[in-house]
Design a protein around this nucleic acid. Structure first.
Lengths: 218, 218, 218, 218
DNA sequence: AATGAATGAGTATTCATTCAT
DNA sequence: CATGAATGAATACTCATTCAT
């Protein structure tokens, strides 16, 4: 394997460790040791640990948004029929998988990043991501909206985050979950298969009829 | 309000700070300052920070499991008809709400704890929780299984975690999410309402027909 | 010599090193090594290096202002005659010497502190000292003003700082200067003697008739 | 304005930053960024940061000494009368101002350099400057000596440094002092005017009759 | 039972300098 | 002649834990 240059080595080591341990739990020492580079190189090349995290974030988010956009266009050109909810989710999963080119860490760290962005103390990261990617994701989200069951705006907002929770939880902890599956059911999980399995579940969730009653059945 | 004693004060302060900032990001100094107790008392009463986290975990998990068990029994005694998936999920939400007695922190920290338990480096916490609560949760999970769509064991395992992801993500980030909802849709979220909204979505997900085809539609 | 306790040891070590090297040039490691205490004790007892510097500052400034005030009162009570400029400066020197009880470092570090306070980037320290001590020094400065030659307010402001320059330069570099004197003139300087020698020089400076002409003699 | 070449750009940037922040507080990165040159060029052209400081020192001290020498000769040729103390100090101020050609930084950094040279830990710089410039300054200092009040050698040594303290303090902190003057007295200080104001004060100080009594008046 | 003081190992970051090209 | 990349040593500061009392 060819030598990748210091910044690439750092990013790769960071992805792996971020995926396994999270961002705050990973120290710059661990990263530089794992990458076999000098302790100071993170600050030299990325300014700070935060800069490295943003670099990792952009490395995944930019191609993801591009994939999503392109696949959406391709589908709408090739197919005469209306796009279905399952198609949309399949497109999302494929876009995620195209990000997951080299190693599993990529997806895992990306999902951890989304989780981080929703933490109370991370408004800065959240608005950084929002400002950068919100508009690019808007067309996709709009298509989800029109294919979901009819519902109020705020209901859709929450359902979108129920769905996001499923995806981030599954993919950021995929390593642990597939290890449990292996010991309990002796079956090996591939990430592609699990993502495929998510599609009907998420689609059904978005299409479920909202229950107007409020805690009265029991 | 009566004085609660040092250990209780610590636990309460810890819940609040863990909920807001996460476990690693919260220092024992912050906890003891917030609780108005001596810095060393966490180690004195709980052995270590890790011990405090486990104490917090047990404080919620034990009553939760008990609630779940009791509500399940009550339902099966009172009602002649078969229990539905929506009923089961309603029971879960009510059990969670009964944990959420005093403040939102309780639920938030509990959900964060579950997330933590699935991290690669937290095998110790995971097996501690498993060993302690797995058997008590088994009857409830079995009922979910029989009310879900027919599927293989491993498929059910993954669906259960899709569902878990929705719940943990929504509740551990409830503060952030409801803040976003407020600025975007000018509507105030109550946690009860949002939990209620989750029920049909989760039920539909568990009942969705599995898709045997594998990435072939597009 | 009795053991002084960690905070005192730190302050003493800091005074010595600050006097010799300045504030920024002195590291917390040097201080704690020199004091024979743990590296973290500075942060434990003083919060930060800045906190230690302020503690050192207050240790000297408070007694200095009190000495000055008391000596001024004593003089005005005991003596029927008007106080002279030389008397005022003698009082200042004696107040400084009463601060210089234990070691030479005290005076030196105090003078370095004044120098620091006038640096462009130290507005915070400057305003901290101003707010805390300006009013207590006002009566003394007023007496200097009425005993100096008649002059405009702004002229007096600058003369006061010419004088301050003489004092701070001489006392903060006293160690170096007396070493030079020793090698060149084989005479030993005592700080008391040198401070006494400053009095007629400073007095003459304050009483000199201002020159209204502006760069015209040559 | 013509491009000055890398070394000149470095020296100019260094002057400005040294004047504002001091030597230790200014990093080579700041200097090279400000100068728009490569980070390594300071070490390339000046060997080290210390080498750059010495280069800055020589850039000012050599012309200063030359100015002083020339102006002294000019005065003695043109004027029949004996040179007065005020004349000598005026010559010094003019020599300093001729150094202060382009900007205030020059004077400020030069004064800071003198202060640095008297610090205990800077024997190297001190002896470098001494060895290089002491003999050239000797004639000027001798003239000060003969025009001052009669006094012992060592007394003159100290008075010279009282005077040096006034000059260095005023000029190295000129920025801060004139800012204070502006806010307090709403008058704008020009450095020429302030230097002129120093002359009668310093002259009076050198001519003051030494006080033989030793702390006995009060 | 409880605590104020202390501590060793750790954190991210900064620095002047070096070196291969 | 010049430079982008890299580096070892140092910086202030923080942490959970321990210990004598």
């Amino acid at each position: 394997m060819a030598y990748k240059g210091t910044p690439s080595s750092i990013v790769e080591a960071a992805e792996e460790l971020f995926a396994e341990q999270g961002f705050n739990e990973t120290t710059v020492r661990q990263i530089t040791n794992h990458a076999g580079v000098n302790l100071a190189s993170i600050n030299y090349h990325f300014g700070s640990k935060k800069g490295l995290i943003q670099a990792v974030a952009e490395k995944f988010l930019t191609p993801l948004c591009n994939s999503l956009e392109r696949m959406l266009n391709d589908f709408q050109m090739q197919s005469a029929q209306e796009i279905s909810l399952e198609d949309l989710l399949e497109i999302l999963m494929r876009a995620l998988l195209s990000v997951h080119h080299e190693n599993l860490h990529a997806l895992s760290v990306f999902m951890r990043l989304l989780e981080l962005a929703y933490m109370k103390s991370q408004e800065e990261l959240r608005s950084f991501l929002m400002q950068r990617y919100h508009s690019k994701l808007q067309p996709y989200i709009h298509l989800l909206r029109v294919n979901a069951a009819p519902m109020e705006e705020d209901e859709f907002f929450w359902r979108l985050h129920f769905l996001l929770g499923s995806i981030t939880f599954t993919l950021s902890n995929f390593h642990t979950l597939s290890a449990i599956e292996k010991t309990e059911y002796h079956s090996d999980a591939e990430v592609e298969k699990i993502m495929h399995r998510m599609i009907p579940v998420l689609a059904a969730g978005l299409q479920a009829r909202a229950d107007k009653s409020y805690f009265c059945r029991i």
